[in-house]
Simulated assay, not measured.
Amino acid sequence: MTATSAFFERLTVAGQDPRFSNVCGSVRFDIRDGDRLEQWLLNIDHGRMRVTRSAGPAETVIRVSAEVAEAMARGEVNGLAAITRGEILVDGDLAMALRIGRLFPRASEQADSDGRK
C-alpha cells in the first residue's frame, strides 16, 4: 500500500473530523504517475468524510504528481508550499484546497507516530 492510499484509507476509517464541522464540499484528487491517473473523491458534509475512488465531479480539483502526493502523505511536503512552487494545481475553491491541507500529516506528527523524535 502506498502512503497516499494509506492516507485516504485513514480518512475513510476516521469518518469524522471535528475541524471540518462547518465545512461542506467536495474535492477530487487527480494523481498522475506517468500515463496512469489515480482519482480520489472526498466529500465533506459538516465534518463527515466520505472517500471514494471516483472521477466524479467536484467543486475543487487538486492535480498533483504521484511523487508529490506520496511526500505529502508522509508529511514531507507542505501543500501550500507545493502550490506556490507549481507542484500542485488547484481548479475551483482555493480556500477549500488549503483547508484540506490540514488533513495531511506534518513531518513532526509523522515522526511521532513512527516512534521517532
Rank of each mutant, 00 (worst) to 15 (best):
E38T: 14
F7Q: 06
A3V: 00
V77F: 08
V90D: 01
F20T: 02
A58P: 03
G92S: 01
D91F: 10
R48I: 12
E70N: 08
S108F: 09
R48F: 11
F20Q: 08
I100F: 09
A3L: 05
W40P: 06
V68P: 09
M96G: 05
W40A: 09
M49Q: 11
R10G: 09
T2G: 07
M1V: 08
R36S: 13
K117M: 15
K117S: 15
G101N: 07
R63E: 15
G34K: 00
I83C: 10
L42T: 06
A97S: 04
E87W: 07
R10K: 13
V90G: 05
E109Y: 02
E59P: 07
W40H: 11
E9A: 12
E9G: 07
L103D: 02
D114M: 14
Q110M: 15
L89K: 14
G101R: 00
C24F: 12
N78P: 06
A71H: 09
V68D: 11
V68C: 11
T12L: 07
F104Y: 07
L103P: 02
D17G: 04
A58T: 03
A81F: 09
A95T: 13
S54Y: 01
L98H: 02
N43A: 13
E67F: 10
N78L: 05
A3H: 06
A66S: 11
A73W: 01
G75A: 03
V64D: 03
A73G: 04
H46Q: 12
S21E: 14
G115W: 03
A97M: 00
L89C: 12
F8Y: 04
N43L: 11
A73D: 02
R48S: 14
T12M: 09
G56E: 07
K117N: 14
A55N: 10
T60G: 02
A71E: 13
A55E: 10
G86T: 01
V90K: 01
R32D: 14
M96E: 04
A97L: 00
L37N: 08
A82T: 00
T4M: 13
D35R: 11
A111W: 06
G115P: 04
I88M: 00
R53P: 08
R74D: 12
F20G: 04
L94G: 04
S108G: 11
A6D: 14
I62G: 04
R99Q: 10
